[in-house]
Write a protein that binds this DNA or RNA. Structure first.
Lengths: 277, 277
DNA sequence: GGATGAGATTTTGCATGCAAAAAATCCACA
DNA sequence: TGTGGATTTTTTGCATGCAAAATCTCATCC
């Protein structure tokens, strides 16, 4: 249940936001979403979408007006995104949009694989709690259903990404090491590195399909290994799963750039083909 | 070379900071340290020192006056420390100082060990670059010299911590995976979890000495394994090194609380004995 | 022609003001 | 004495103003 938060009626402090119809939404209970949070997510989205030229200065005035807020929350949001690694702070000159080399993306995926491998090993050693087991099995079920529909539409692509995120999140959550989750979350901030960032080749759906089937099989084997308490095997499978994902990214990236592939994956715009940083 | 940055002479905007003698220092070159950065570090220090009661609200007015800045940079600093996990944001009620269970600290050290183990394995596989090798050997040399002086004074304790940080940082740097460094840095933000956070038992120096010698030997063996390209052995040694560190923390913690040990280690004040979060 | 620098302009960083939300206080009444 | 509600006080969140720094402009000089 949601309701419209009342807007200040004061003439001076009025900050109606013409280009942003829905605004001041907050949940009934207590999670009063502050302007800063919305601004942060909106800005993150804009950056990942490639709204701003990479490696160039991003003036806070521009951000403020794009987001329809004053400079204060805009600046706050930029500070947050700096911590997330999307922006770089220049001493007394504001912020710059950070770019990432494809190599760095692949490295991030590799590291994510290592982190998840730790989780898999620990879970396999300590045993998988029923809740998490159910959650992972549900993911595998969802994948099976999705795979039945031959050509993936946009909605199904979204569903597949969600399923994938859910599976990987469940794995890391299941191991119960909170600091491991922070590390996982941190690495996922690199564009294209998170389990959410799957690239679909729409021009040649059979290629994507092959990758999805491989993913599905990986997931099933990983869960199987964990349930069988094969910790080393589980870790190795997870590592390989991530390795494959990294290789896919590297292979698919040129296609993206050449527009034979949908660019719905957020963050693509921030990634440079390959050369040094 | 440093110089005093000029202070605004405007009467209204004056913000002399009585309790903070040195101020407005900036390096000659270009790294103009902004007020926010100083505020952030100062606040981090205050929090880690236990200036504020844990799990209680921290009003931004208090922070602002303690730091001698206005509320704007104070709030900025608090936002940064929220990202670092030291503060928790309450929806519309500002921030709260976060506390950590001893279990979580030990978990963080365990995770750090895993991350460093990855680094060790990768470095051993790919080979250790001469620069990093020299840096790590230098650390081992420094440790040997320090260990010759029997009772550790405060200065030597500081030096030892620096040496330790240097060794561990060098290891993670050497592997060359930038995203691994982020994960490492993230985990190190948990109080008492970083290689800097060594607890010395001053009441019983022979205990600390034993631990230091063990650390020294670990370092030497780790470097040896890496140089010999024994990747699995290197990883195992690193893991064990961290495990030992975690156990030491757990064992030493009660002594700290009972004041038989110096509390110069930052962050001790944020750690609860053991119960749930 | 290209470098140089004085002045104008923009942009950043911070302090402050103000309204809404939260917390504290007080008071009436049982 | 304890409790509920209304009122006051405090605190948060944001917009804005202003000065210093950075950047740009353009005319001058070598």
């Amino acid at each position: 249940m949601q309701k419209i938060h009342k807007v200040k009626s004061d003439a001076v402090n009025m900050r109606e936001n013409p280009e942003n119809g829905m605004q001041y939404l907050e949940t009934e209970d207590a999670a009063a979403e502050t302007q800063l949070e919305r601004a942060t997510e909106a800005l993150r989205d804009l950056i990942l979408r490639g709204t701003f030229p990479v490696d160039e200065k991003l003036p806070e005035t521009r951000v403020a007006e794009l987001l329809g807020v004053s400079r204060t929350p805009a600046r706050l949001a930029m500070a947050v995104l700096e911590q997330d690694g999307l922006l770089v702070r220049l001493p007394r000159r504001g912020f710059r949009v950070r770019s990432f080399s494809l190599d760095e993306v692949v490295e991030a995926i590799e590291v994510r694989g290592e982190v998840e491998a730790i989780a898999a090993r620990v879970v396999a050693e300590r045993g998988l709690h029923a809740d998490h087991c159910a959650r992972m099995e549900a993911c595998i079920g969802r994948a099976e259903i999705l795979l039945k529909n031959a050509p993936f539409e946009a909605a199904q692509r979204r569903d597949w990404c969600r399923m994938n995120v859910d599976f990987h999140d469940a794995l890391v959550t299941a191991c119960g090491l909170r600091p491991l989750w922070s590390a996982y979350a941190k690495v996922n901030l690199v564009p294209l590195a998170s389990p959410r960032d799957i690239m679909f080749n729409v021009a040649r759906p059979e290629l994507s399909r092959r990758q999805l089937e491989a993913t599905h099989e990986d997931h099933a084997r990983i869960l199987d290994a964990i349930q069988a308490r094969h910790s080393t095997r589980a870790a190795a499978l997870v590592r390989e799963h991530a390795y494959r994902s990294g290789e896919n990214k590297r292979r698919n990236f040129p296609d993206i750039r050449m527009r034979t592939m949908v660019i719905e994956t957020p963050g693509v715009a921030l990634v440079r083909p390959s050369p040094a940083e």
